[in-house]
Design a protein around this nucleic acid. Structure first.
Lengths: 226, 226
DNA sequence: TAGATTGTTAATCGATTAACAATC
DNA sequence: TAGATTGTTAATCGATTAACAATC
């Protein structure tokens, strides 16, 4: 029946950006915006903005543009930000702690309800009113609580095993911080972060720019020498 | 002169993945690999692998495939992992501390040489032998030391200002952890992380899957009721 | 030599951009 | 009504995949 074409991941990955820019506009008390204006702000084409938004519905009005507040709400809805997901953090090392302490997730409806680690020195300590529990209690916890998302910040070697375990227990999504591409047999959605990949790409870009400027110099020099 | 076409970002973003898989193969003492085998492991087409690698050179050999070690080295080189970049962390909150404590960056040639924060309670404390300095000393530090990369983990509101400052001081790359798209006038390369965007995408995917399975149920039910 | 597998060209697919009729 | 701007179709561009001659 519903033969709507599936929205491409490229579009999805732009949604949080739209959300951020609309949120900014809202804060600046701007009530309406045209695709052209938004295009100038975001640095993408107006055509793409209209194309993107129309994957989900006709949110605009000819001759007027888009109402900032209602578009903001629409995109929140599409992203599921009104859904009140529950999350747990597995691995309370430095990265796990940073995630636990990051307040913005709660604001967006991601409620942290548990933190787990194997390290007895960490177990019992509290982060933001949540006590770190031992990994041994993880299985029972998931069975007794509705847990939507597990944030994985365990060491590389343990990632696969932990991921498989929680996936088997019926968690819906995995947010993976380990530099490893998770492939899970269970019916679970995965989003990889791969910080080190990102840093390597930065390194590449720097390298590239350096080479370019060297080449520029060479060209200049050879001109002079002629 | 050099009319080679610029390699697309899509290809660049796959390089760290190749690097990881080759690193794994090396550890497993596998000396050669065909694009077909690698394809099976990585879940991308053999064609794409060959196409990607050929952007940088003919690293393989007909009838044989690729030598794992030499390909590994080639990709390290392309990514600039033998370059010994120096880095500083600006913002020593939880995320900054997590970054400082993450050992793998050093291994890849990213050497942390400074950490900065405005918080007097943090200034003076040490992370991995590096004392946290006050932000006021940042400018002098960059002038007196070659700093390639600044990792920005400051609060949202301060990101733009800090980014502009360090860019003006001649830093080559910015690794931005704030949920804000940096646009810098200076000649600096930027890589954004945007963790919250990633989490929102995960939320979307979960939402989507949920809708699908509900639809499935509806279809089943309507069949029964017929 | 025969088999395997690359490098590379051509075909396909998908995503972005341009154009414009519809309409507020 | 005239001007603005959308929604949407068509054109273009780029990225992925298929195919195969070259060659180890």
């Amino acid at each position: 029946m519903d033969t709507k074409k599936k929205v491409s991941l490229a579009v999805i990955r732009r949604l949080p950006r739209y959300f951020r820019y609309l949120s900014d506009l809202l804060q600046m008390d701007i009530t309406r915006i045209s695709s052209k204006e938004l295009s100038a702000r975001m640095g993408i084409t107006a055509s793409q903005i209209r194309q993107d938004l129309n994957c989900f519905g006709g949110f605009g009005q000819q001759g007027y543009g888009y109402n900032v507040e209602s578009l903001y709400k629409e995109i929140s809805n599409i992203l599921g930000l009104n859904n009140d997901y529950t999350t747990i953090i597995i691995g309370a090392g430095h990265m796990g702690q940073a995630l636990a302490n990051y307040g913005n997730f709660e604001k967006r409806g991601y409620k942290l309800i548990g933190i787990f680690d194997v390290n007895p020195e960490l177990v019992g300590r509290k982060i933001k009113d949540i006590e770190i529990s031992h990994m041994d209690t993880l299985e029972d916890f998931i069975k007794n609580n509705k847990v939507d998302i597990a944030m994985l910040s365990v060491p590389f070697e343990q990632t696969r095993c932990v991921a498989d375990k929680v996936a088997g227990l019926g968690i819906k999504g995995l947010w993976n911080f380990s530099p490893m591409d998770l492939k899970i047999s269970y019916d679970v959605v995965i989003e990889n972060v791969h910080l080190s990949d990102s840093l390597m790409v930065l390194g590449y870009k720097i390298n590239e720019k350096l080479k370019e400027s060297k080449q520029q110099k060479t060209i200049k020099t050879s001109k002079h020498s002629k």
